[in-house]
Amino acid sequence: MRPRPSVLVGFAIIAVYVAAAVIGPLVSPYGEAEVVGDVWEPFSAAHPLGTDNLGRDMLSRLLWGASRTIGVALAATLLSFTIGMTLGYLAAVVGGWVDMVLSRAIDTLMAIPTLIFALVVLAVLPPSVVILILVIAVLDSTRVFRLARAVAMDVVVMDFVEVARLRGERLGWIVFREVLPNTLPPLIAEFGLRFCFAFLFLSSLSFLGLGIQPPAADWGGMVRDNANAISFGLPIPLIPAAAIAVLTIGVNLVVDWQLERSSTARRGA
């Protein structure tokens, strides 16, 4: 199936953001917390996106924020996949009481709304980058577990897995050579969705003042810092908020396409 134009748009958006995250701090005109002008200066040649509530250059902060926000979200997603997939495959392939205990525990964890659980934990733990990554990863890994277990369950019942069992293959071969390669397409799409979740979640925490702490630049925090500008008719908080929204829309466009592709591929098989 040929990608639709919307998918190309999605890929282009992701490419721009990745570039910004990687080289943003290097090409940023000013420092992350450098005060370079007045409060909320309008767009100008010196400050293409104006200045923020403390007179810092918005563009520079956006670029610095890209690497921080995307970096933390990506790290959390990677960690959540490591946890979720390991446990999910374990539950599906081993089955029995291992599956029951893991599934019950994860179900209970999922019974608590993610944001509420994060708030409770952040009430006593300092919102450092490591803590944020850990909290988001653990909460997110429950969803990864569910999906990884479900897709692995679909594959585990296939006869070719039984063939491997009957041959006497070890658990490692069965998981990595028989099951894993057949479960990747839906999990790739899920990676995009989970990244969006981690990214939005981190932004929301920062917006609530509980995420990445000032003066470090972070898009959710930048919305919070400049929220008052709105009442003066200045759309400044909309700039970092739009930066967040555009990335998630881009990722979702690609994910939608990937999901459709893997479902038609399965139907075709």
Partner: peptide, 28 residues
């Protein structure tokens, strides 16, 4: 798809900007 991709605060501030600050229809 766009709506579920956006953080709630983005939608919130857009609505405030347009309907409260620019149009004065509702309180912000």
């Amino acid at each position: 798809l766009s709506a579920i991709s956006m953080p709630e605060f983005f939608i919130g501030y857009i609505l405030i900007f347009v309907f409260a600050v620019k149009l004065f229809w509702v309180p912000s």
